[in-house]
Design a binder for these strands. Structure first.
Lengths: 209, 209, 209, 209
DNA sequence: TATGAATGAGCTTTCATTCAT
DNA sequence: AATGAATGAAAGCTCATTCAT
């Protein structure tokens, strides 16, 4: 049924093994404290081999970042073509983070500790991605304001900060405390709390201000 | 009144100069990338002198952390003795961060990038301080729930995440974008936006849900 | 039979090269003054490679100590199983030092300057080895006393000091003066002088004291 | 009776305090590990002051060496003018070491660990002193041979090695084991053992060779 | 005299990266 | 594809020495 792996498959597999090992090690030690040796060891290969698959340590880190951002942007692009309700779009963002945290906690951890806030390994280019993400979210919020769903007396940028900040805070704490999501119900509770508070707090009042 | 500095003053001054230089450099490069050489250069002194005033790089970093946390906890303790209204307490927290950001942006930056989220230099002890701060905030929130000011159908911890996350988000963005607060008015606008959205979103509804 | 070196051989060889270089440099400069740079240079390799083969400078030094002591104890153990005459045993000890001085003068030099007397790098464990050696020698001397070959009115420990002190003195001077042994004859003369004076001086007199 | 110290006295006293502190610290840590700070602390003064009394660390060390050698040479010179018997001369040397060990154990310790054998701080000049001492002793031994008191079939230099080696060995062990001399009797026993064994072992036999 | 702040060369150790095999 | 020996640039820390006060 699977007679033998092609060269390409084998290559991809090994690359993925290194990638995963890197995620694990960087999550545990942080980017700068993670040594190539550690990553190679975690992947069960010699450290020289890492350089066959990735040009450098920074290159490997960039691959991780790309993986994270491309997943996020792909998700957000879906809604750009046929935008559903504001609530659904915000719920999608929240859901994405929580889903990823279940499926790839290392990746989310790295996003929180190494990308989101730390200046540790932030090149200008990397900071840029963060701004794009924030800009995309802001567009959604602004659109919500034009639809009179969200109050307009607060800058859309400020509402964005509040929304993403609250979201990130949840994820951060779980990440930093190493707390796993206890099943679907907790995920649901968190998403509900976050969205309810934000939407209720930011909702345009019927009678104007 | 005191025309010339005492020895002690001079010593403290130099120590402060190194401290400030360290804040600047660590903010710019991150803890691990900040070299003692950089700090000495920024302080306008020789390499070895840093070690005259601080036992080690970690010791210098700890001094920075202590400075930050002691200021924060001092502020919060004031309200523990004679607690004003919920709104005032939360406003005090928001105000503290914004004030500090004006007065000592480097310190706030380091809090955000190196303490708050990054795993960079987080010893267990250092993480602990963060939890204490969060715990204190949670107490305020929980008290707001018992006073029926805040809704009780969401865990106090969750509300705390939302509140602090939103606050931190504001600060983070300003920090990462290097954006200065444009006068008192912007500080006011930010504080208002944050508190309004949170309080309105989290407010206990009169008639239940 | 084995035309080319195996990987293992090559590794051992390089390790031995570093070991030898370390012996040379430590002999010349003393342990604390010997820099890793010097050792690397003497071995004709790069700085970092030393750390590929030895965990640290102390580790490298320990390897040297182990080499010395294991050789010495191996020699002494041989006689423990089938002890020959007292004279032969003492001659074996003298012979060992003189032989080693011919074959590995650096090692003997280090024994004299860094192990035997200097407090330079003496951990408790290292001092211990010296005591064991002295204890072994004392047993031989004490046995000579029970056999009535050596006088018993002097503590065996004292006789041991005299014997080993005289031996070490010979070696030391040769070491410090950098004097090579001029062939087999001088080695013989030294051994004879030492043993004769000691044995005659320490011999039990026929008629009691 | 001693109304007040003259300037010179005070100066000498402070210098002596530093000297003594240096002896103590160098004995404990070895020359290279002894820091000026340690010595100053032990002397109860600031470290800058050490440089008022001694040009450098090496200078301070040289003062210690000079103290040691001058004492030894003074003692030996006494006998050069009116030489007593061979036995008395050798006994004087042994006695000097044992006496000094009682009175100034630090100085003897330093002689053993830092001068006598260790290459740690041995400049060419310092090694020279050792040779002079050995040469002086050799002259005594050689004179004993011409007097037919000592056997002549062994080079005088060899006999010197044996004698001094045995002596040094005793002192070394006491030094390294931190063993104090238990009163006058032990000193006597050691001196007797050493001299008896050496003299009996090295004595010219009655019947010629 | 006396202090200790100030300097900077020097040392060990780490680790990303290259390269021969 | 795979290994790990080899390289050398950093970086933290120490400490003898100088010097202003």
């Amino acid at each position: 049924m699977q007679p033998h792996k092609t060269h390409n498959d084998a290559k991809k597999e090994k690359e993925a093994a290194i990638f995963d090992a890197a995620c694990r090690v960087i999550r545990e030690k942080g980017y700068h404290q993670a040594r190539i040796t550690d990553i190679a060891q975690a992947a069960g290969i010699s450290y020289g081999l890492v350089y066959h698959y990735f040009k450098s340590k920074a290159d490997l880190f960039d691959a991780i970042l790309t993986e994270w951002w491309s997943g996020l942007f792909t998700m957000m692009d879906q809604y750009q073509t046929q935008p559903p309700s504001l609530e659904e779009q915000l719920a999608a963002i929240v859901g994405y983070f929580l889903d990823q945290y279940e499926k790839r906690p290392d990746l989310v951890h790295i996003f929180i500790t190494e990308i989101s806030r730390s200046s540790a390994a932030l090149t200008q280019e990397r900071v840029q991605m963060f701004r794009v993400f924030m800009g995309n979210t802001e567009k959604i919020i602004a659109w919500g304001q034009t639809q009179k769903i969200l109050r307009s007396d607060i800058k859309p940028r400020y509402l964005t900060y509040i929304f993403l900040g609250a979201l990130e805070s949840f994820i951060s704490i779980m990440v930093l405390e190493g707390r796993p999501l206890k099943g679907r119900s907790e995920k649901q509770r968190i998403a509900t709390a976050l969205l309810e508070v934000f939407l209720k707090g930011a909702r345009a009042s019927q009678e104007g201000k």
